[in-house]
Amino acid sequence: MSHAGPPRLAFLASDRPEAQEAKARLAARYGSHSVDEADVVVSLGGDGFMLETLHHCLRTTQSIYGMNRGSVGFLMNDYLEEGLLERIDAAERAVIHPLMMTASDIAGEVHHGLAINEVSLLRQTRQTAKLRVSIDDKVRMEELVCDGVLISTPAGSTAYNLSAHGPIIPLDARVLALTPISAFRPRRWRGALLSHKAHVCIEVLESDKRPVSAVADNFEVRRVQKVEIVENREIHLTMLFDAGRSLEERVLAEQFQS
């Protein structure tokens, strides 16, 4: 998409009034193109909207530069209208790969979803979930009794994974986090770090009595029987961060927060 001259920008904004107002001002100042015609997509909102933008751009080659016009802005740059082209030109790049979820439900239907943050399995009723966990075709845990479990990418490790007391993962660590959610048995199990090449398979035990849903970011499948998760290395998403405020720096700094 590159061409001579300054990058062509596409502006996407969340529904929040401040994001919509920012989109109008920036488009008037810098010009606006469709996503397909742009070199860089500028996402205006919070982390939730950045996730929407990344999903919107899964099959494109544009880089994505976020500016915070929402409540949480871990994945966003500070909002400034001045010098946007210069900031984009000097930005540091972070390339991320999504997880691919293949979920089979109790009716035998197979569903596919992509997750930039995490794939999570969650109990649907008051009954705890009973899960069997296999890694690379070897059963590693015969029975995990819990509220759920999640598999997180490094980019998503500071989101739901961190809230579930999972580890923060450096972006270049080439590992995934497998983190239980309120584990009841084994009570002291805190999860595992897996190679980014790992093939994770989670089977739902007693699925009729203890129904479980599977969620790939915002795509949910109810009453699943088996869920398989692998990293999709064929999809490359490039995020841009202001110089000195790279995603790697943010992830490192987050580990020293009190």
Rank of each mutant, 00 (worst) to 15 (best):
S157L: 09
T61K: 15
L44Y: 12
R233K: 15
D147M: 11
P211C: 02
S104K: 11
V42F: 11
H56G: 01
L194D: 10
D36I: 06
V35C: 04
R185H: 10
D208L: 08
D78V: 01
K138D: 12
K138Y: 13
V200G: 01
V139I: 14
T158M: 12
V133Q: 01
V133M: 03
G46F: 14
R185M: 10
P211G: 06
H97W: 13
A103E: 08
S32Y: 08
A103I: 05
L85R: 13
R123V: 06
Q255V: 03
D172V: 00
D78L: 04
L162F: 14
R187A: 15
R185D: 10
A22R: 09
E142F: 00
Q20D: 05
G191D: 07
M141R: 14
R190H: 10
A243T: 09
G73Y: 07
F184A: 15
L171S: 04
R210E: 12
E254L: 03
I202T: 00
H3F: 07
F49E: 01
A19D: 05
R210I: 07
P180T: 12
R87C: 08
A94D: 05
V72L: 15
V251C: 04
L205S: 03
L75F: 12
S71H: 12
K138H: 14
Y79I: 06
I202W: 00
P17T: 11
L193R: 10
L176T: 04
L12D: 04
V40Q: 11
R223L: 10
H3L: 09
E52C: 05
V133S: 01
L9E: 07
I135M: 14
L75D: 08
R132E: 13
S258T: 04
R123D: 10
L121N: 06
I96T: 14
V42N: 07
T238S: 15
S152R: 00
F11G: 04
I96H: 11
S134R: 05
I235F: 02
S213T: 03
D39M: 05
V204W: 02
M101C: 08
L131M: 05
E231W: 06
V35F: 03
E81S: 13
V221R: 05
E249M: 03
V204S: 01
E52V: 07
G5S: 11
E109Y: 05
R93N: 08
